[in-house]
Design a protein around this nucleic acid. Structure first.
Lengths: 325, 325
DNA sequence: CTGAAAGCGCTAACAG
DNA sequence: CTGTTAGCGCTTTCAG
């Protein structure tokens, strides 16, 4: 904890009461110009930094928001947390970010940590468990972003989500239009987004008069250790000439395998866009998520809920954009 | 702020004193098994979460460390902050991370924020200004990582740095060994690392019997907006057949320009490694920084300093690894 | 315009 | 083994 210069020291040095120091430093108008000046000078000379904990405990709010993210190394979440921070900062809120590594246990302790830090609200990208959020959160406002846990339908929380069905359908449809006859899928292990993306994939096939085929619907392990082998399975054994990839981490593994397979006419598509896809040798079509809007909307809803706890929960869907390279 | 169930509520419901609740919940041995059980049950039934602010203010430490990072979207810093978090978490510390966007003003408010949050210590990747850290930090321990501000030499802070000179020299030497006759440099705008990397570059040239030439030493703008043009300048106008690039963000712009220039025999090298360099069509040699060690070492030093404020400051240099693709 | 005093929620003596 | 009390640093009535 920092050096011990407190409001009391400043008060003593300035020859005024603690109350006056407090007022002077918080730009309270009911204090003489001179007094304010003197107090401010002395405070900065002494290197006084108000103790935010003491303040928060007194005013019963921290002006801090908690953010729970499953994997900060995943570029999508890096950008999402940045978007959330920017949006929060625009509204004058600080942010404490916690990683869960997709682990329910870590998510639970993250939640506890944030609650103990008395954050004014929490933004959660859920690790997907059947956690009883309402029981843990109590009266702390929260909004779910990107992923919705299974039982959250009837809970009092907002959800800010991407339209995974539409986004996936658009991409798979594009692959088919570009000539793919048989499009496989390597989906992610994350239940919420994966099931929506699978639906989008199947709708695209059906709309094109094709029959979904379980033999070319694969699911990656959480650590993606089986992706390269699945890529071969779908593209060689199953003779797919199109492939939809469930997220950017899986895509990286697929790209790692492709050169071995030498398939110049493969139609490749996937969720999540990355700048460096510009440098890839093969064409690729991606669903770029509206990350900035996701962050801003989540913050807007959370702050609204903090301001008015009776606000009714909403589910908001934002659309992904299809990008062809 | 969270629902208002406090230690007092638990005490009342359990028919004991607040002190006993506190003891029971903090596994203090001096409390009867039965009482502890009862208290724990009641606490969890009530959905009690201890108020960490109140606790911290009382015990005069937060068990939280602050981390100041210039750009969380830069992959190097994403990984560095993750490494720091992991190391901190291993020692039971929480982390609050703040972005500065390389702005001195934002760095100043980040520092203030962390100080007001009463963090036990701070890890700083400096935006590079002449900030008087000692004046701001007071007695809060801090360590500098990756970059050292100009005036920190004689201040009481540890520095954990990469050996930029050696790392750069190794790469440029490699480029020359591979046949480059004239190696240019596009350096970053960050003064600390840039000047060290320039030194390494020049040492490599000199060691190879070449004369450094200011005409092929370029510096990128902070937003890299002039990098593509510089790439052309060095590779076409100045006829460089080798190029050293100061960091990964600049490298991305260089890579964006290269296809236009059609230089199949270019010897390309740069600081910072990225996984996706695997997918590049041309060869590239990079300096991979020891990020995990950087984070762990910084945390080790910081915790040591927290434990013993009289610890003498040290400067630690870690080596980068040369990777050829 | 300023001061005195109370109290936010918690833990650490000190008693018992 | 448990209760009483004081106090961490701050803001906010309530008086003046």
């Amino acid at each position: 904890m920092t050096g011990k210069v407190t409001i009391k020291d400043v008060a003593k040095a300035a020859g005024v009461s603690e109350a006056t120091v407090s007022r002077a430093l918080s730009h309270n108008p009911r204090v003489k110009r001179d007094t304010r000046q003197k107090v401010q000078n002395i405070a900065s000379n002494l290197g006084y930094h108000p103790n935010g904990l003491a303040r928060s405990i007194r005013v019963q709010q921290t002006h801090t928001l908690g953010v729970i993210i499953p994997d900060i190394l995943n570029a999508f979440f890096t950008h999402l947390s940045r978007a959330i921070e920017d949006a929060a900062s625009r509204s004058g809120y600080d942010v404490v970010l916690v990683n869960t590594d997709e682990s329910l246990a870590k998510e639970a302790s993250a939640l506890n940590l944030l609650l103990e830090k008395q954050v004014d609200g929490i933004i959660i990208t859920s690790a997907g468990g059947p956690t009883d959020y309402a029981a843990i959160l109590g009266s702390t406002p929260a909004v779910f972003v990107d992923r919705m846990p299974p039982n959250v339908q009837d809970t009092p929380y907002d959800r800010v989500l991407v339209d995974n069905v539409q986004g996936t359908q658009a991409i798979v449809t594009r692959l088919i239009q570009q000539g793919a006859q048989r499009v496989g899928i390597i989906n992610s292990a994350v239940s919420f987004t994966a099931s929506e993306r699978l639906t989008g994939y199947q709708k695209a096939l059906t709309a094109a008069g094709q029959e979904p085929d379980a033999a070319i619907e694969a699911t990656a392990r959480e650590d993606n250790s089986n992706v390269q082998q699945m890529t071969r399975q779908l593209l060689i054994n199953q003779k797919c000439d199109g492939l939809f990839v469930g997220d950017n981490t899986i895509m990286e593994e697929v790209l790692r395998k492709l050169p071995d397979l030498n398939l110049p006419h493969l139609q490749l598509g996937g969720f999540d866009d990355q700048d460096w896809f510009d440098f890839l040798p093969q064409p690729i079509v991606t669903a770029k998520q509206p990350i900035a809007e996701l962050g801003q909307t989540a913050i807007d809803r959370l702050l609204a809920k903090i301001a008015d706890p009776d606000l009714l929960p909403k589910e908001i869907r934002l659309s992904a954009t299809t990008i062809s390279r």
